[in-house]
C-alpha cells in the first residue's frame, strides 16, 4: 500500500508529468512562464487547487450523483480557485498581478478537472492526496523549468522569489555582452521553446 501511494505521487513528478508527458494545461504553461518566478508561482497555485479539490472530491465521491458530478467538481474547483485568488492578493500581490487572468483560469485547467474526475472520484483520500500533490508538483517544476529557460535566454538573468521565502538573483549568466534573445519571452517564443523542451523530454525515456 505504502509503495503504491509513493508511486501515485512519483508518477506525477516524472512519468506522467504534465505538460510534458500529458500535453495538457497548456494555457498557463504558455501564458505565464515569462520568468521562473511566475512559473513556480502559477505551479504552486495550481498544486494547491489540485490538492484541495482532489481531497474534497475524494471525500464527497460517494455523495455526488453521477449525472451532475462534473458540475459539482467544477463548483469545488472554482471555490478553491477563488480561495487561491484571494490569498494571493492578500499575501503575494505582485505575483498576482503578473499571473493576472491565468489564476481564475485554473478553474478550466484540464489537469485539475481531469484528475478530479479520473482519479479522485474513484480513489480514496490518501491516494488522491498523493496523486494531486504529485501531479501538482510535477506541473510546478515543468512550469518553473520552462520559465527559467525562457527567462535565461530572453533576458540573460534569473531573478525572483517564491512568496518571499526563497530568493534567487543570478545576473548575466552568459556574460555582460550577451544580447538577450527577446523572442524567448514573447508569445511565439513560448510555443517554440515548449515544443523544443517537449522534444528534449521525448529523447529522455519515461521509465
Amino acid at each position: 500500500m505504502a509503495k503504491s501511494i509513493a508511486s501515485e505521487f512519483t508518477k506525477g513528478l516524472w512519468k506522467e508529468v504534465p505538460p510534458f508527458r500529458l500535453v495538457l494545461g497548456l494555457c498557463p504553461v504558455l501564458g505565464v512562464t515569462t520568468s521562473m518566478k511566475n512559473g513556480i508561482g502559477m505551479g504552486l497555485a495550481t498544486t494547491f487547487v489540485l490538492l484541495c479539490s482532489n481531497i474534497l472530491v475524494s471525500l464527497l465521491r460517494k455523495v455526488i450523483p453521477a449525472k451532475v458530478r462534473i458540475a459539482c467538481f467544477i463548483i469545488i474547483i472554482a471555490t478553491f480557485v477563488i480561495v487561491v485568488e484571494q490569498m494571493m492578493q492578500a499575501f503575494a500581490y505582485t505575483l498576482f498581478l503578473d499571473l493576472g487572468v491565468f489564476i481564475p483560469l485554473i478553474v478550466v485547467n484540464c489537469i485539475v478537472l481531469g484528475r478530479a474526475e479520473a482519479f479522485a472520484s474513484k480513489n480514496g483520500v490518501v491516494k488522491s492526496t498523493a496523486d494531486g500533490l504529485g501531479i501538482g508538483l510535477g506541473f510546478t517544476w515543468a512550469l518553473g523549468l520552462l520559465g527559467a529557460v525562457r527567462e535565461l535566454i530572453g533576458t540573460g538573468s534569473l531573478k525572483g522569489d517564491v512568496f518571499g521565502l526563497i530568493h534567487w538573483d543570478v545576473p548575466n549568466i552568459f556574460g555582460a555582452s550577451f544580447e538577450p534573445f527577446g523572442f524567448a519571452v514573447q508569445a511565439p517564443g513560448a510555443f517554440v521553446i515548449l515544443g523544443l523542451l517537449l522534444c528534449a523530454m521525448n529523447l529522455i525515456p519515461s521509465k
Binding site: 513560448a190 510555443f191 517554440v192 515548449l194 515544443g195
Partner: peptide, 12 residues
C-alpha cells in the same frame, strides 16, 4: 505535439 507547438509558435 512538439512540432505542432513549434508550428503554432510560428503562426503566432
Amino acid at each position: 505535439t512538439s512540432i505542432a507547438l513549434i508550428t503554432a509558435g510560428v503562426i503566432s
